[in-house]
Nucleic acid binder design. Structure first.
Lengths: 330, 330
DNA sequence: AACTGCTGAGAAAACGATTGCTCGCCGATG
DNA sequence: CATCGGCGAGCAATCGTTTTCTCAGCAGTT
């Protein structure tokens, strides 16, 4: 692969001039610039990224640390991130933390080491990843979940409010024993949705005892939790499910037990998906603006990278309830 | 951020010794090595990635160029890639080409410029991206789709055979007018599935005329195509759908027309998903080993990066038909 | 004609690591 | 006692850019 000196030699100028010409910097004699461009073209010259990064002390790379790309919610986020990053000439490295604080830490180390321009982080636990990043002057934007300590830029969904709303909706539809299936303790979204569920119960004047189960945010763990919930002596007549993957397990469990969503057990789940309207009855959901979250967070991060030193912000996008058949007892 | 010279100074040794000690190279006096490690630790030293990359003339980064992470099939692939890359100490940059050859080309340029160690490519069209990469000695592994020209390493699914099998299955179930909804012309998987469909028709001794529609591989475009297909003067009594996103549109279209999958129109779709068993009747699918494809391809690529110069290989994983209710007329 | 500004290009110094080469020092051998 | 061999550490070159500094040359002013 051709280097800048080869281009310089071929164009009969110095490397400095080549660099300037290629970067459209300063004023370079148009004739020379033309020669340079031509020479670069003929040699198929591509500047060496690492060299440039070393010299400029910056890279055009963002790290995106999420729990799992296979979760459609994070998939949409990552698409949003990638789109705006790409438009700005940045690349995105994808990191699956699996909600494991150790893996998260490890990825943060890599990000630091590679001197990425910024990090989009969906924090797994109460770790201090974000602080370590900021300690090294790497801009961070938290996404979907707030940072444990300290306030960095954050893009959230008012998930607690949405959970409350969904719970109230179930109550309004006549369900009385409302259960909740949420994610692991310590994961903010899981806890917030649970809190919102409790808000809703209180607002509706209901008290279900503790019809609550936790599992990982995945389908496998949720299956067991769903069965356990439905096997209560006094089982719930409606369930708020904290994400899409778990909803699949809940619906499967109901099916196995010969129970029909809506009629027998009301169901509202977080995260919309194309298939939710295909099932009978269609699944009521809390739709989250995942793509926009990714895009917004990326924009924010690029702003910080660009030297924006204004106060850190917390952007809260709103989720909205999409009531469908699975939460209508009629 | 501390540099190697600061560590060297603090430990009272040369940078060379620090480098060797930190990389566990050669023989360094254990006492010195201890001092170095301690110094590095106290300073929170992380080697500067770009500098190291420049010097070593290599990076620990793979580029993954796929059409769209929001497609669950590619999501699973990317997860497979990321897992094995991570285990090997590599990072993955994610690139969505949207099946646009220009965008693909652009990403290839970036990959070249950043001197990534290798590229996993799901080629969009009949472009020459792979050749350009190989011309610059960047290892490439094609994934899901063969390379237009030239044979580089490739990881495929025997999609044509699977389509044939699915078609025969529909025929066996008693359907007679088999239609096919596939992807854009020129996308190998789309063409292969169509070819497999035709193979199946021939093998079954059926001739449906041309009950074929093409659309992009997305839900929106597929909706129109599905309606058009079902509005034929003599509409199909079964449809082979070439991917998951399009299947959603087909099922939605059937629902709108008051037709029941299986009973009125048999349906088999490519790509399994958690929700396919939740609908009534459950959706028959051709399940593809997407995660394994990603993992396999990444392993292959890492092998090439490691200097494996043996003949290029074509790995064909097999998809398997999962017959469910949507293809039983009974 | 001498001096001042100004423009534009080249020389060379970074950036921060890795690594080939050199060299000092040690004990061992002839 | 002189030399040799080997070990371990440092010096300095190197990777390919960008960018500061310097300087040559030219035009304009007095």
């Amino acid at each position: 692969m051709a280097t800048i000196s080869e281009v310089a030699e071929r164009a009969g100028v110095s490397t400095a001039t080549v660099s300037r010409a290629l970067n459209g910097k300063d004023s370079v004699d148009p004739a020379l610039a033309g020669r340079v461009l031509a020479a670069a073209d003929e040699l198929g010259y591509r500047p060496n990224g690492p060299a440039r990064n070393l010299r400029k002390q910056e890279t055009a790379v963002l790290a995106l640390i999420i729990s799992d790309v296979e979760n459609p919610f994070f998939t949409a986020i990552s698409r949003g991130v990638e789109d705006v990053a790409h438009d700005a000439g940045y690349s995105v490295v994808l990191c699956n933390s699996d909600d494991d604080p150790d893996k998260e830490r490890e990825y943060v180390e890599v990000a630091l080491q590679e001197r990425v321009a910024g990090v989009l982080l969906s924090p797994a636990g109460r770790g201090d990843s974000a602080e370590k990043l900021r300690a090294h002057d790497t801009p961070v934007v938290a996404i979907d979940r707030p940072l444990p300590r300290s306030g960095g830029d954050t893009v959230l969904v008012d998930t607690r409010l949405a959970a409350r709303e969904a719970t109230l909706h179930l109550a309004e539809q006549g369900y009385r024993r409302l259960g909740c299936l949420t994610g692991p303790e310590g994961v903010p979204t899981a806890d917030d949705r649970l809190a919102g569920y409790r808000d809703g119960l209180r607002a509706a004047g209901l008290d279900s005892g503790e019809l609550v189960r936790r599992s990982d945010f995945k389908a496998t763990g949720a299956a067991e939790a769903a069965h356990s919930l439905l096997a209560e002596r006094q089982p719930p007549d409606a369930i708020l499910v904290a994400n899409n993957a778990m909803a699949v397990s809940v619906l499967a469990a109901l099916d196995e037990l010969g129970m029909r969503p809506g009629r027998d057990v009301g169901v509202v789940a977080f995260d919309d998906a194309p298939w939710t309207v295909l099932i009978d009855p269609p699944l009521s959901v809390v739709a989250q603006p995942a793509y926009d979250m990714g895009a917004t967070a990326a924009q924010l991060l690029l702003g910080r990278i660009g030297g924006d030193h204004t106060e850190t912000t917390v952007t809260t996008l709103s989720a909205h309830l999409v009531p469908r058949g699975s939460s209508r007892s009629g």
